[in-house]
Design a protein around this nucleic acid. Structure first.
Lengths: 107, 107
DNA sequence: TTTTAATATTGCAATATTACGATAATAAAA
DNA sequence: TTTTATTATCGTAATATTGCAATATTAAAA
Protein backbone atom coordinates (compact mmCIF):
# COMPACT_ATOMS: atom_id res chain seq x y z
CA UNK A 1 0.00 0.00 0.00
CA UNK A 2 0.92 3.67 -0.11
CA UNK A 3 1.32 3.45 -3.86
CA UNK A 4 -1.18 5.01 -6.23
CA UNK A 5 -2.82 2.25 -8.29
CA UNK A 6 -2.10 3.85 -11.65
CA UNK A 7 -2.87 0.68 -13.58
CA UNK A 8 -6.59 0.96 -12.91
CA UNK A 9 -6.84 4.40 -14.51
CA UNK A 10 -6.61 5.53 -18.10
CA UNK A 11 -3.42 7.08 -19.40
CA UNK A 12 -5.30 10.34 -19.80
CA UNK A 13 -6.35 10.31 -16.16
CA UNK A 14 -2.84 9.51 -14.97
CA UNK A 15 -1.29 12.21 -17.17
CA UNK A 16 -3.75 14.82 -16.07
CA UNK A 17 -3.28 13.94 -12.40
CA UNK A 18 0.49 14.10 -12.88
CA UNK A 19 0.23 17.63 -14.27
CA UNK A 20 -1.85 18.73 -11.30
CA UNK A 21 0.44 16.98 -8.89
CA UNK A 22 3.60 18.72 -10.07
CA UNK A 23 1.85 22.08 -9.82
CA UNK A 24 0.54 21.11 -6.39
CA UNK A 25 3.35 22.52 -4.31
CA UNK A 26 3.63 26.18 -3.28
CA UNK A 27 7.37 26.23 -3.95
CA UNK A 28 6.81 25.19 -7.54
CA UNK A 29 4.01 27.71 -7.98
CA UNK A 30 6.31 30.37 -6.53
CA UNK A 31 9.19 29.34 -8.79
CA UNK A 32 7.03 29.60 -11.90
CA UNK A 33 5.68 32.99 -10.84
CA UNK A 34 9.14 34.28 -10.03
CA UNK A 35 10.67 33.09 -13.28
CA UNK A 36 7.85 34.61 -15.29
CA UNK A 37 8.46 37.98 -13.67
CA UNK A 38 12.19 37.89 -14.35
CA UNK A 39 12.10 36.92 -18.02
CA UNK A 40 15.04 34.73 -17.08
CA UNK A 41 16.24 32.97 -14.02
CA UNK A 42 19.33 32.00 -12.17
CA UNK A 43 18.91 29.28 -9.59
CA UNK A 44 20.80 31.09 -6.87
CA UNK A 45 18.38 34.00 -7.02
CA UNK A 46 15.66 31.50 -6.33
CA UNK A 47 17.34 30.23 -3.21
CA UNK A 48 17.33 33.73 -1.74
CA UNK A 49 13.94 34.62 -3.16
CA UNK A 50 12.06 31.52 -2.07
CA UNK A 51 13.88 30.72 1.14
CA UNK A 52 14.49 27.01 0.74
CA UNK A 53 17.88 25.31 0.67
CA UNK A 54 19.70 25.14 -2.64
CA UNK A 55 19.30 21.37 -2.82
CA UNK A 56 15.57 21.67 -2.30
CA UNK A 57 15.15 24.32 -5.00
CA UNK A 58 17.18 22.21 -7.39
CA UNK A 59 14.88 19.28 -6.71
CA UNK A 60 11.75 21.33 -7.41
CA UNK A 61 13.29 22.65 -10.62
CA UNK A 62 13.95 19.07 -11.66
CA UNK A 63 10.29 18.18 -11.30
CA UNK A 64 9.20 21.19 -13.33
CA UNK A 65 11.75 20.26 -15.98
CA UNK A 66 10.44 16.70 -15.94
CA UNK A 67 7.02 18.01 -16.89
CA UNK A 68 8.60 20.03 -19.69
CA UNK A 69 7.42 23.29 -18.15
CA UNK A 70 10.93 24.66 -17.78
CA UNK A 71 13.78 24.60 -20.21
CA UNK A 72 17.28 25.23 -18.93
CA UNK A 73 20.14 26.80 -20.78
CA UNK A 74 23.72 26.65 -19.56
CA UNK A 75 25.28 30.12 -19.36
CA UNK A 76 28.81 29.69 -18.22
CA UNK A 77 28.64 28.33 -14.74
CA UNK A 78 25.09 29.45 -14.37
CA UNK A 79 21.83 27.93 -15.47
CA UNK A 80 19.15 30.04 -17.05
CA UNK A 81 15.76 28.48 -16.58
CA UNK A 82 12.86 29.67 -18.67
CA UNK A 83 9.25 28.65 -18.98
CA UNK A 84 8.59 26.66 -22.13
CA UNK A 85 5.68 28.66 -23.43
CA UNK A 86 4.46 26.01 -25.89
CA UNK A 87 4.31 23.40 -23.18
CA UNK A 88 2.75 25.96 -20.87
CA UNK A 89 -0.05 26.65 -23.34
CA UNK A 90 -0.56 23.00 -24.06
CA UNK A 91 -0.93 22.24 -20.37
CA UNK A 92 -3.35 25.10 -19.91
CA UNK A 93 -5.40 23.69 -22.77
CA UNK A 94 -5.38 20.21 -21.27
CA UNK A 95 -6.62 21.52 -17.96
CA UNK A 96 -9.33 23.65 -19.54
CA UNK A 97 -10.47 20.76 -21.64
CA UNK A 98 -10.83 18.70 -18.46
CA UNK A 99 -12.76 21.45 -16.74
CA UNK A 100 -15.02 22.12 -19.72
CA UNK A 101 -15.93 18.54 -20.57
CA UNK A 102 -16.58 17.76 -16.94
CA UNK A 103 -18.77 20.72 -16.23
CA UNK A 104 -20.83 20.38 -19.39
CA UNK A 105 -22.33 17.13 -18.09
CA UNK A 106 -22.77 18.27 -14.54
CA UNK A 107 -26.01 17.79 -12.65
CA UNK B 1 11.34 17.73 7.53
CA UNK B 2 8.86 16.06 5.24
CA UNK B 3 6.54 18.97 5.87
CA UNK B 4 5.90 21.64 3.27
CA UNK B 5 7.07 25.01 4.59
CA UNK B 6 3.80 26.80 3.91
CA UNK B 7 4.70 29.76 6.09
CA UNK B 8 7.28 31.04 3.60
CA UNK B 9 4.73 31.30 0.79
CA UNK B 10 1.85 33.66 0.23
CA UNK B 11 -1.68 32.58 0.98
CA UNK B 12 -2.44 32.76 -2.71
CA UNK B 13 0.44 30.42 -3.53
CA UNK B 14 -0.61 27.96 -0.85
CA UNK B 15 -4.24 28.03 -1.93
CA UNK B 16 -3.40 27.54 -5.57
CA UNK B 17 -1.03 24.68 -4.77
CA UNK B 18 -3.71 23.10 -2.62
CA UNK B 19 -6.17 23.17 -5.51
CA UNK B 20 -3.67 21.52 -7.80
CA UNK B 21 -2.74 19.00 -5.16
CA UNK B 22 -6.27 17.77 -4.57
CA UNK B 23 -6.75 17.35 -8.31
CA UNK B 24 -3.39 15.60 -8.53
CA UNK B 25 -4.58 12.06 -8.05
CA UNK B 26 -6.00 9.89 -10.86
CA UNK B 27 -8.73 8.51 -8.60
CA UNK B 28 -10.01 12.00 -7.91
CA UNK B 29 -9.84 12.93 -11.59
CA UNK B 30 -11.74 9.73 -12.38
CA UNK B 31 -14.33 10.41 -9.71
CA UNK B 32 -15.03 13.90 -11.05
CA UNK B 33 -15.28 12.62 -14.61
CA UNK B 34 -17.58 9.79 -13.60
CA UNK B 35 -19.86 12.02 -11.55
CA UNK B 36 -20.12 14.53 -14.34
CA UNK B 37 -21.26 11.82 -16.74
CA UNK B 38 -23.93 10.55 -14.37
CA UNK B 39 -25.58 13.85 -13.48
CA UNK B 40 -25.70 12.35 -9.99
CA UNK B 41 -23.69 9.89 -8.08
CA UNK B 42 -23.98 7.12 -5.57
CA UNK B 43 -20.79 6.20 -3.78
CA UNK B 44 -21.26 2.48 -4.20
CA UNK B 45 -21.30 2.82 -7.97
CA UNK B 46 -17.94 4.50 -7.65
CA UNK B 47 -16.45 1.57 -5.80
CA UNK B 48 -17.36 -0.73 -8.68
CA UNK B 49 -16.57 1.82 -11.35
CA UNK B 50 -13.16 2.91 -10.08
CA UNK B 51 -11.96 -0.30 -8.53
CA UNK B 52 -10.68 0.92 -5.18
CA UNK B 53 -11.93 -0.18 -1.79
CA UNK B 54 -14.96 1.59 -0.37
CA UNK B 55 -12.91 3.17 2.43
CA UNK B 56 -10.47 4.55 -0.11
CA UNK B 57 -13.17 6.04 -2.30
CA UNK B 58 -14.78 7.61 0.73
CA UNK B 59 -11.46 9.19 1.65
CA UNK B 60 -11.00 10.66 -1.85
CA UNK B 61 -14.56 12.01 -1.79
CA UNK B 62 -13.77 13.68 1.51
CA UNK B 63 -10.84 15.54 -0.03
CA UNK B 64 -12.93 16.71 -2.95
CA UNK B 65 -15.62 17.82 -0.53
CA UNK B 66 -12.96 19.63 1.50
CA UNK B 67 -12.12 21.70 -1.54
CA UNK B 68 -15.80 22.45 -2.04
CA UNK B 69 -15.80 20.75 -5.42
CA UNK B 70 -18.44 18.23 -4.42
CA UNK B 71 -21.62 18.73 -2.51
CA UNK B 72 -23.32 15.74 -0.99
CA UNK B 73 -27.00 15.23 -0.38
CA UNK B 74 -28.39 12.50 1.83
CA UNK B 75 -30.99 10.43 -0.01
CA UNK B 76 -32.27 7.86 2.41
CA UNK B 77 -29.38 5.58 3.18
CA UNK B 78 -27.52 6.75 0.15
CA UNK B 79 -25.38 9.80 -0.52
CA UNK B 80 -25.76 11.70 -3.74
CA UNK B 81 -22.61 13.56 -4.59
CA UNK B 82 -22.72 16.29 -7.18
CA UNK B 83 -20.19 18.72 -8.54
CA UNK B 84 -20.67 22.22 -7.19
CA UNK B 85 -20.70 24.09 -10.47
CA UNK B 86 -20.07 27.52 -8.96
CA UNK B 87 -17.01 26.31 -7.12
CA UNK B 88 -15.96 24.41 -10.22
CA UNK B 89 -16.08 27.56 -12.34
CA UNK B 90 -14.33 29.59 -9.69
CA UNK B 91 -11.48 27.09 -9.52
CA UNK B 92 -11.18 27.01 -13.29
CA UNK B 93 -10.94 30.80 -13.25
CA UNK B 94 -8.28 30.75 -10.55
CA UNK B 95 -6.18 28.30 -12.52
CA UNK B 96 -6.56 30.24 -15.75
CA UNK B 97 -5.66 33.44 -14.02
CA UNK B 98 -2.47 31.78 -12.78
CA UNK B 99 -1.64 30.49 -16.25
CA UNK B 100 -2.39 33.77 -17.97
CA UNK B 101 -0.56 36.11 -15.63
CA UNK B 102 2.43 33.84 -15.58
CA UNK B 103 2.72 33.41 -19.31
CA UNK B 104 2.20 37.08 -20.07
CA UNK B 105 5.53 37.91 -18.45
CA UNK B 106 7.39 34.94 -19.80
CA UNK B 107 10.76 35.26 -21.52
C1' DT C 1 46.64 24.57 -12.17
C1' DT C 2 44.21 26.05 -8.21
C1' DT C 3 40.48 28.44 -6.55
C1' DT C 4 35.88 29.97 -6.61
C1' DA C 5 31.01 29.98 -7.75
C1' DA C 6 26.84 27.76 -9.34
C1' DT C 7 24.12 23.85 -9.75
C1' DA C 8 23.16 18.76 -9.34
C1' DT C 9 23.15 14.56 -6.85
C1' DT C 10 23.24 11.52 -2.85
C1' DG C 11 21.79 9.95 1.53
C1' DC C 12 18.92 10.42 5.16
C1' DA C 13 15.27 11.93 8.64
C1' DA C 14 10.64 13.55 9.22
C1' DT C 15 6.15 13.84 7.67
C1' DA C 16 2.37 12.99 4.29
C1' DT C 17 -0.27 10.16 1.28
C1' DT C 18 -2.41 6.04 -0.35
C1' DA C 19 -4.88 1.99 0.42
C1' DC C 20 -7.56 -1.26 2.92
C1' DG C 21 -9.68 -4.23 6.65
C1' DA C 22 -12.45 -3.68 10.51
C1' DT C 23 -15.84 -1.30 12.60
C1' DA C 24 -19.15 2.44 13.59
C1' DA C 25 -23.05 5.06 12.23
C1' DT C 26 -27.26 5.81 9.82
C1' DA C 27 -31.57 4.90 7.75
C1' DA C 28 -34.65 2.11 5.08
C1' DA C 29 -36.78 -2.56 4.84
C1' DA C 30 -38.47 -6.75 6.79
C1' DT D 1 -37.17 -4.41 16.64
C1' DT D 2 -33.97 -6.83 13.85
C1' DT D 3 -31.85 -7.01 9.58
C1' DT D 4 -29.73 -5.14 5.62
C1' DA D 5 -27.44 -1.70 2.80
C1' DT D 6 -24.74 2.36 2.37
C1' DT D 7 -21.31 5.45 3.77
C1' DA D 8 -17.88 7.26 7.21
C1' DT D 9 -14.21 6.68 10.38
C1' DC D 10 -10.31 4.41 12.70
C1' DG D 11 -6.09 2.03 12.81
C1' DT D 12 -2.31 0.57 10.44
C1' DA D 13 1.11 -0.84 6.78
C1' DA D 14 3.51 0.54 2.73
C1' DT D 15 5.23 4.00 -0.12
C1' DA D 16 6.00 8.90 -1.52
C1' DT D 17 7.29 13.55 -0.68
C1' DT D 18 9.72 17.26 1.42
C1' DG D 19 13.81 19.30 3.03
C1' DC D 20 18.59 19.66 4.00
C1' DA D 21 23.64 18.72 4.84
C1' DA D 22 27.32 16.85 2.55
C1' DT D 23 29.41 16.05 -1.55
C1' DA D 24 30.08 15.84 -6.58
C1' DT D 25 30.24 18.20 -10.85
C1' DT D 26 31.08 21.85 -13.95
C1' DA D 27 33.06 25.90 -15.80
C1' DA D 28 34.87 30.42 -15.28
C1' DA D 29 38.42 33.24 -12.88
C1' DA D 30 42.73 33.92 -10.62
Amino acid sequence: MGTTKSQIFTEQQNDLAQLFKVLGHPARVAILQYISHQNACICNDLVEEIGLAQATISQHLKELKGLGLLKGEVEGKRMCYCIDIDRWNSIQNQLNSFFNTTKSNCC
